[in-house]
Amino acid sequence: MCAHIVVAEDDEKQAELVRRYLEREQHSVIVVSDGRAALDEVRRTPPDLLVLDIMLPKVDGLDVCRILRQETDLPVLMLTARSTEDDLLLGLDLGADDYVTKPYSPRELMARVRTLLRRTRVAATPPDPLLRVGTLTLDPVRHEVTVDGKPIECTPGEFRLLEVMAAHPDRVFTRGQLLEHLHGFDRYITTRAIDVHVMNLRKKIETRPRKPARLMTVYGVGYKLTAGEERQNGAS
C-alpha cells in the first residue's frame, strides 16, 4: 500500500521520526515545516494523505484543514498536543479524518496511516449502487449526497456517517458503533464527536433541524436514518 504522503510538522525531530517510519513502510514522503508550505505542496502535487500538525507557523493546522476542505477530500491525519475535547472536536468538525495526540507511539501513528489509506483505496474501488433513503441519495463513488435532488456538501466524516446509516436504513446505531466506522478504536476520542457530526448533518439534510425527520435520535441508544417523508410532510 505504497502512497505519497505530505508531513507538515515544524518540530525537526518529530518530522524526521515520522519520515523514517513512513519510508520504512515504502511510502514516498515530503516534509514541510509550516502551514503555507503545506498548502502549496498539496496543491502542487496532491498526495494520498496529509499528516498535519495543528501548531504550525504562518498558517496553523486548523486553518490549513479548513482551507483544504473547501478544495479537496484529501485524507487528513492531525497531530496535536492539545488534549482538550473542544480542540479535538474542532479539528474533526473542520474535516480532519482522524487525529493522534502527542506524545504518541510511532507504531500507533503507522496504524492510523494504514487505516486511512485503506479507506481511500476502498473508496476507489468499482462503483457501488447508489444508496437511497427516501429522497436522500448517496453516491459512494462520486462522494455526492443529494436531498430532494439538491446537492449537499459534506465533510469526509459526515459522508462516512451517512454512508454507514444509509446502507442500513432504520437500523439504530450506537454512538460507539458509529465511532468505530469513522475513526476506529481510539482511547482518546469521545462519542461526543458523533453528536457534533449529527448536529451538522441535520443542518444540511433536514427541513427543520431542531425537529429532525430523517436523522433520528433513539433516546438512550443512538441514531438511525429513516426515509422521513411522512414525518416531514405531516409536520406543522
Rank of each mutant, 00 (worst) to 15 (best):
S83M: 06
A81P: 14
D98Y: 02
L17A: 15
D86N: 05
T72D: 04
E144Y: 02
N200C: 06
D53E: 15
D139R: 10
D34Q: 15
R19D: 11
V122Q: 12
Q232F: 05
P46C: 02
G157T: 12
R160G: 00
D86Q: 12
A81H: 12
R36S: 02
R112N: 06
T146M: 04
E9K: 11
T217R: 08
R20Q: 15
V122C: 00
F185P: 00
R19H: 13
R210I: 04
P106H: 03
Y223A: 02
D87I: 08
A38E: 02
L162E: 04
L92C: 09
I67V: 13
M165D: 08
E9I: 11
P140G: 02
D34H: 15
V59D: 01
T101R: 04
P75D: 06
A123M: 06
M78F: 09
V218R: 11
D60Y: 06
I205R: 11
R66E: 14
P103G: 13
D148G: 08
A38H: 08
P126L: 07
P46I: 02
R231T: 14
A123D: 12
G228K: 08
T72G: 01
V59S: 04
H143W: 06
T146N: 07
T190M: 01
M78P: 05
R187L: 06
L77E: 10
D10H: 14
E230V: 14
A38G: 09
